[in-house]
Simulated scan of single mutants.
Amino acid sequence: MEPDTVVPTAVETDAEVMASVEEGPTDSFILADISQDNAFVTMPLDEAASLPAWR
């Protein structure tokens, strides 16, 4: 059986990544690389994985 692995990608060493929750009619989870313009991902907070689920 072939292992299910992912090839590591190159990572910028001086990147600054932050996460935030934006409250509003629909609460949103935002993950952003603040060292780059327009480098962010948003999703409804209800769909974001909790920290224990990421482990």
Score class of each variant (00 low, 15 high):
residue 1 M to W: 08
residue 1 M to D: 14
residue 1 M to P: 09
residue 1 M to Q: 12
residue 1 M to V: 13
residue 1 M to K: 11
residue 1 M to Y: 12
residue 1 M to T: 11
residue 2 E to K: 10
residue 2 E to A: 10
residue 3 P to E: 03
residue 4 D to C: 08
residue 4 D to P: 00
residue 5 T to S: 07
residue 7 V to R: 09
residue 7 V to A: 05
residue 7 V to H: 13
residue 7 V to G: 02
residue 7 V to S: 14
residue 8 P to I: 02
residue 8 P to E: 02
residue 8 P to W: 05
residue 9 T to R: 07
residue 9 T to M: 08
residue 10 A to S: 05
residue 10 A to C: 00
residue 10 A to F: 07
residue 10 A to M: 00
residue 11 V to T: 09
residue 11 V to A: 00
residue 11 V to R: 09
residue 13 T to M: 02
residue 13 T to F: 02
residue 14 D to E: 15
residue 14 D to G: 15
residue 14 D to S: 15
residue 15 A to P: 07
residue 16 E to F: 03
residue 16 E to D: 12
residue 17 V to K: 04
residue 17 V to S: 11
residue 17 V to R: 06
residue 18 M to S: 12
residue 18 M to N: 12
residue 19 A to I: 07
residue 19 A to C: 11
residue 20 S to E: 14
residue 21 V to Y: 08
residue 22 E to H: 14
residue 23 E to S: 10
residue 23 E to N: 06
residue 23 E to T: 10
residue 23 E to M: 10
residue 24 G to K: 09
residue 24 G to N: 05
residue 24 G to M: 10
residue 25 P to E: 12
residue 26 T to I: 15
residue 27 D to K: 06
residue 27 D to W: 01
residue 27 D to S: 14
residue 29 F to K: 01
residue 30 I to F: 09
residue 30 I to D: 08
residue 30 I to N: 11
residue 31 L to Q: 05
residue 31 L to M: 04
residue 32 A to P: 12
residue 32 A to T: 07
residue 32 A to R: 09
residue 32 A to S: 13
residue 32 A to W: 00
residue 33 D to P: 00
residue 35 S to C: 00
residue 35 S to T: 12
residue 36 Q to M: 09
residue 37 D to Q: 07
residue 37 D to N: 08
residue 38 N to C: 06
residue 38 N to D: 15
residue 38 N to T: 01
residue 39 A to G: 07
residue 39 A to H: 11
residue 40 F to A: 06
residue 40 F to M: 05
residue 41 V to S: 03
residue 41 V to Y: 12
residue 41 V to H: 10
residue 42 T to S: 11
residue 42 T to D: 04
residue 44 P to C: 03
residue 45 L to F: 15
residue 45 L to M: 13
residue 45 L to N: 02
residue 45 L to V: 04
residue 45 L to S: 06
residue 48 A to M: 14
residue 49 A to W: 15
residue 49 A to D: 11
residue 50 S to H: 02
residue 50 S to R: 02
residue 51 L to N: 02
residue 51 L to K: 02
residue 53 A to D: 13
residue 53 A to N: 08
residue 53 A to E: 13
residue 53 A to C: 01
residue 54 W to N: 08
residue 54 W to S: 07
residue 54 W to C: 15
residue 55 R to T: 03
residue 55 R to S: 05
